[in-house]
Nucleic acid binder design. Structure first.
Lengths: 129, 129
DNA sequence: TACTTATCTGAACGAGTCTGCAATTGAAGC
DNA sequence: GCTTCAATTGCAGACTCGTTCAGATAAGTA
């Protein structure tokens, strides 16, 4: 066996010996590249959005704000969910960081409103069930 | 002051004295009803879906599966993300419980594929940025 | 049969999250 | 000024999560 054959042999063993077949390997390389160019900021912003909504208290608050269709304050929201007003305030600030609600000062109150991103997500959840 | 006036007085203090105004109170009662009829199963299934996707490893796996557009196995996915194959397996099983991927036995491998719910969610995230 | 590869499972540990409490800020009204 | 109500903040305790490690299972191969 020539040296070239030998190297080819090792190449084939390395690349094709196990779970990856020929055609797929190319495709996986493409995916790998795609993975590495996927902007890390986008990933973490999406993950932040999803995990903000992936909590029962926060999910219910967002549903309420979307359905209310008018801005509500902490003191209005608290009786509608089963946690303290402090927890509601914490929750809303997490949601605000994630871009799912906006806050507006209004006299003595701070009125929260769901963003379009929030209602788009709920719409997809409802529509893909 | 008559007894009726007295009761009315107390009513007004209870209902209108603080952060809720008249019209809104009605609206809030509606929301409260809506809240309580919101099926708890739907809430927890949505929350499960969102929190499954709200984690970097799992989010990247789903993105890869959506973009691959063909079923991939653990051993193909592991090199594309930065965790052990055991972690990938755990992650995929979480995603499977959440209805974001499906699993199919294929010889020695188990091939995972993203569900339409998964790609719908990613589409909305991309489209509402 | 034993051996290898792919995957899964359970335990364990550290890290992170959620909530309530108490104290604080800020705005309005007396 | 003081009081009240709304909301926030910091903190502590309980709980949950994500990962790795080690061991088990299962399917194909020699």
């Amino acid at each position: 066996m020539s040296e070239t054959d030998d190297r080819l042999q090792r190449y084939l063993e390395d690349e094709l010996g196990e779970c990856r077949d020929e055609n797929l390997q190319e495709r996986l390389d493409e995916l790998d590249e795609l993975e590495s160019t996927l902007d890390g900021d986008i990933v973490s912003s999406d993950v932040q959005t999803l995990s903000a909504l992936g909590n029962e208290t926060r999910y219910r608050l967002v549903r309420l704000l979307v359905e209310a269709d008018e801005p509500l304050c902490v003191c209005e929201l608290t009786p509608l969910v089963d946690v303290s007003n402090s927890a509601v305030s914490h929750a809303l600030s997490t949601l605000s960081d994630a871009g799912l609600v906006t806050k507006r000062k209004e006299g003595r109150w701070r009125k929260y409103r769901a963003t379009s991103r929030a209602s788009a997500l709920l719409t997809v959840l409802d529509g893909s069930r």
